[in-house]
Computed example of a mutant assay.
Amino acid sequence: MIISLIYFAAGIGVFIWGIFTLTRGLKVFSHQKISQIINNFASNLLKSIIIGFL
């Protein structure tokens, strides 16, 4: 019985650690992707004005 509880607690711990790791990775990925998209649209003044208007 106590072994089952230890396995359960370990499983929950690994699950929560995985969620935090995934969240951190997605934040880094999305930040890089958004920065790249903004740089692409801001490279040209006319393109920047049109995107800003839309």
Rank of each mutant, 00 (worst) to 15 (best):
M1Y: 07
M1I: 08
M1F: 07
M1V: 08
I3W: 06
I3V: 08
S4K: 06
S4N: 07
L5K: 09
L5V: 05
L5P: 01
I6W: 02
Y7C: 08
Y7I: 02
Y7F: 10
A9H: 00
A9G: 01
A9N: 04
A10W: 05
A10F: 10
A10I: 09
G11C: 00
G11S: 01
G11R: 01
G11T: 01
I12T: 00
I12S: 03
I12K: 03
I12M: 05
G13W: 00
G13K: 04
G13F: 03
G13H: 01
V14W: 02
V14Y: 00
F15P: 01
I16H: 05
I16G: 05
I16M: 08
I16Q: 06
W17S: 07
G18C: 01
I19W: 06
I19N: 05
I19A: 07
F20M: 02
T21R: 14
L22C: 06
L22I: 14
L22P: 02
R24H: 05
G25Q: 08
G25Y: 05
G25F: 10
L26T: 11
K27T: 11
K27Q: 11
V28C: 03
V28K: 08
V28D: 09
F29V: 13
H31L: 14
H31G: 08
H31F: 12
Q32P: 01
Q32F: 09
Q32T: 11
K33W: 06
I34W: 01
I34C: 01
S35N: 13
S35Y: 05
Q36F: 13
Q36R: 12
Q36H: 11
Q36C: 07
I37V: 11
I37W: 12
I37F: 11
I37S: 08
I37G: 02
I37N: 09
I38K: 04
N39P: 08
N39A: 14
N39Q: 14
N39S: 15
N40D: 13
N40C: 04
N40E: 13
F41I: 15
F41R: 10
F41V: 15
A42T: 15
S43E: 12
S43I: 11
N44E: 03
L45W: 10
L45E: 15
L45G: 08
L45K: 15
L46R: 14
L46C: 06
L46G: 09
S48Q: 10
S48W: 09
S48P: 04
I49W: 12
I49P: 07
I50H: 15
I51W: 07
I51Y: 12
I51S: 10
G52Q: 02
G52F: 01
G52M: 00
G52A: 02
G52W: 00
G52H: 02
F53Q: 07
F53E: 03
F53P: 01
L54K: 03
